[in-house]
Simulated assay, not measured.
Amino acid sequence: MNTTTTTPVPLDLWRNPHGRLMLRLAGGTEPVAVTPVRAFPIAAPLEGLSLVGPDGHELAWVPRLDALPAAARALIEEEFAAREFVPTITRIRSVSSFSTPSTWEVDTDRGAAQLVLKGEEDIRRLAGRTKLLIAASDGLQFHVPDVTALDRASRKLLERFL
Rank of each mutant, 00 (worst) to 15 (best):
M1G: 14
M1A: 09
T3M: 14
T3I: 11
T3E: 13
T5A: 12
T6R: 09
T7V: 12
P8I: 08
P8R: 03
V9A: 01
L11M: 09
L11C: 05
D12Y: 02
D12A: 07
D12P: 05
L13G: 07
L13P: 10
L13I: 12
W14R: 13
W14P: 07
W14Q: 11
N16G: 04
P17H: 07
P17R: 06
H18D: 10
G19H: 04
R20H: 07
M22I: 07
R24S: 09
L25G: 05
L25M: 08
A26W: 00
G27K: 01
G28T: 04
G28H: 04
G28W: 03
E30Y: 03
V32Y: 00
V32W: 00
A33K: 00
V34F: 01
P36E: 03
V37R: 04
R38A: 07
F40C: 12
P41Q: 04
A43F: 00
A44Q: 13
A44L: 10
A44F: 04
P45K: 04
L46E: 11
E47M: 02
G48A: 06
S50I: 02
L51Y: 05
P54V: 05
D55K: 04
H57W: 02
W61F: 12
V62F: 01
P63C: 02
R64G: 08
L65F: 01
L68I: 12
A71M: 03
A71L: 01
A72Y: 01
R73V: 00
R73Y: 00
A74Q: 06
L75Q: 10
L75M: 10
L75K: 05
L75T: 06
I76F: 00
E79H: 02
F80K: 00
F80V: 03
A81F: 06
A82M: 01
R83P: 01
R83N: 06
P87W: 04
I89N: 08
I89E: 07
T90S: 12
T90H: 05
T90M: 11
V95L: 14
V95P: 15
F98H: 13
S99Q: 15
S102Q: 11
T103S: 15
E105K: 09
E105Y: 09
V106L: 06
D107L: 15
D109P: 11
D109V: 07
D109A: 04
G111P: 10
A113L: 12
L117A: 01
K118E: 15
K118L: 14
E120C: 11
E121D: 14
D122L: 14
R124V: 14
R124L: 14
R125Y: 07
T130V: 15
T130R: 08
L133C: 03
I134Q: 01
A135Q: 15
D138Q: 06
L140H: 07
P145A: 03
D146S: 13
D146R: 10
A149Y: 05
A149L: 14
D151K: 03
A153W: 05
A153I: 13
S154E: 11
R155I: 12
K156L: 14
K156T: 11
K156H: 07
L157W: 00
L158T: 10
L162A: 09
L162V: 03
